[in-house]
Design a protein around this nucleic acid. Structure first.
Lengths: 201, 201, 201, 201
DNA sequence: TATGAATGAGCCTTCATTCAT
DNA sequence: GATGAATGAAGGCTCATTCAT
């Protein structure tokens, strides 16, 4: 039996979102594993039973948050990217987009950089797939005759390239320089990739 | 004659190493957090008390293993590499070196890719620093007049670039293609970096 | 004209019975303890609050169902049975009567065989008493001058004898043989009892 | 990994038995389901962790107790029964044996009469099988040429017959009379069974 | 030194019941 | 009357660490 409910009413949805936002803050601050469901309840000003009224288990909270992020993510990229016909300048703004996104989605970097993919990949994976799909789509639009598989490969690699570099923005002291470095790397890879595959514009 | 007395220090060190190697295998298979200290003891054929005789706590086991890896890591890049004046061909070898290293250090990829840096960075960080230092050193030798800070930056960025991309070798189906892609990215970044900083050969 | 007003009492009683029948099915399938009040509400298509409108607590649902069974139980033994002067052939029918009853009262065997009497005896006990009273009455009619206490004792013992044996019908593979065995036991005890007490026909 | 241990040392075995005996008393008094593992720990004067050091989970405590009972059961029946060549007099003492057994095994009747067989049959079943096997063996010895299947059937039915009647000793006020009644029933069934199958002595 | 039994705080989850709407 | 979101005590179990032998 489903003892939990996807909220339909306004009141319910407010509560649902409230719990989710509380969890978001806690996840961002202490990490998913370190946060207990009772903490989420307490900080939400809600009984633990209410948390389990909305979510079947702890992982479902993670899942709901990820889904929320994935939704927001979909309205993030296309808007900024599709207009540009120049892939290089697209590459330039991707990083800024992500950084901006992180600002308004407290737990995003935790999901992206620290959560164990082997353990939570089946949940967090949507984020990866969403971003990769967005990149893929842009590339496909600019190079309509590029094979899908190739688009996907480029999207996948460049996504992980940026994903691997972004944490340096926090780790290293000179964020501005790092941002430049990431752009350099991303653009360099793009150019090399296109050249190798014979798509030199 | 006390010939039957095995020197205590040696026996001790053997036990220490044995426990560590057992932990290595377990960490590699199940991940650091999932492994219990009692498991390590059992699989080592040693009492849990003995584990705590050698290591003050669980993190110390991680620390010792990381240190062992850091030591081995110093001979990561063969001497031949530094001789190469062509950094591009060096870049080509780096990936193979790391892959080879992973083969003989079961938990390496777990430490590098999945362990939460926010939580264990103070322990695992040595690995990062060691590899980065190695890269830095190679670059410094090829470009003796490049400022240290710049060398370090290049080393740091390229390290994270590769670190971000390597997991794809396991995730994606066509490992050979991925390896090519990583090399492309690494070389492209190197070239762009040198060009931008005015070190065009 | 308020023809569109369904009489409240009837609607109420219908709801009551509906909930009860739903609970019956669930109890039969999963057992009383395993079924939650929310499950009963959901499967009834009724709000949990409504369940508690009709029943003060979970045990009251059990109680109402038991009472319903107890009522039906009073017509357990067909009128024809009492006419029979031969108690042995009566004994032959008893088992079939109970089996037939079980068929139309899904949770009956659960109440009779698995529910903890120490915990729910004060509720389920009615069933026992009703059946025993029915048996007692039959015996009394056939042997009008048998002391009530003796009738009661016989009824009690033979009831528990059958109750102890009936579950074998489900447990053991050859139900037909088992049914024969139960009849043998029941009749043998009857004969021995009558003989011992000096009621040999 | 087995985090719990079957105790080998004397100290350990004492603790193990102590916990088990505490559980026995609690099970007997409140029933298996009502007793919490923490209660067992508290009443044992032991930390909850110690309980889980010896038993993998709550059901294992039940299992260990059942096994202990099954062992004791095996030394109970043969001794008393095998000597007698007269099955009827054997039947006479069986009840006394069981009653005596119950006196020294506090939770026995709870296991036998109230524990849900559908849920715990896979654990408690050993008791059933042990007793049935004992009866079967005795019958086989007295009637060596009776088919095994028939022996088993008799053993099974007579076991459940007694099992169904024994609780009356506690429920009803006149225990002596009930005991007589049980013996009557058991003997009557035995005689009828033998007669029907053509084993009249 | 080596042993391994013992510890206990704390985690995730369930479910009968209430009460404001 | 009907609704169903909200409650929160309580339960089974884990595991890093200690310490008496």
């Amino acid at each position: 039996m489903k003892t939990w409910h996807e909220p339909q009413q306004i009141r319910s949805r407010a509560r649902f979102n409230h719990i989710l936002s509380t969890a978001e803050v806690l996840f961002a601050e202490h990490g998913y594993e370190a946060v207990t469901t009772n903490q989420i309840a307490d900080h939400s000003g809600v009984a633990i039973g209410s948390v389990y009224h909305f979510f079947p288990d702890k992982e479902a909270i993670l899942g709901a948050l990820v889904e929320r992020y994935a939704t927001d993510l979909q309205s993030l990229f296309p808007a900024a990217m599709t207009i540009q016909s120049d892939l290089e300048s697209v590459a330039a703004m991707v990083i800024d987009c992500v950084i901006a996104f992180e600002q308004h989605h407290a737990a995003f970097s935790h999901f992206l950089y620290v959560l164990d993919m082997g353990k939570y990949g089946h949940i967090v994976g949507v984020i990866h797939r969403t971003v990769i799909a967005a990149i893929e789509q842009v590339v496909q639009q600019v190079y309509p005759d590029m094979p899908t598989a190739l688009c996907l490969r480029y999207a996948t690699v460049s996504f992980h390239l940026v994903k691997g570099l972004l944490p340096l923005l926090v780790t290293e002291q000179d964020a501005i320089t790092i941002r430049l470095e990431i752009q350099t790397a991303l653009r360099a890879y793009l150019r090399a990739f296109l050249e190798r595959e014979g798509y030199v514009s």
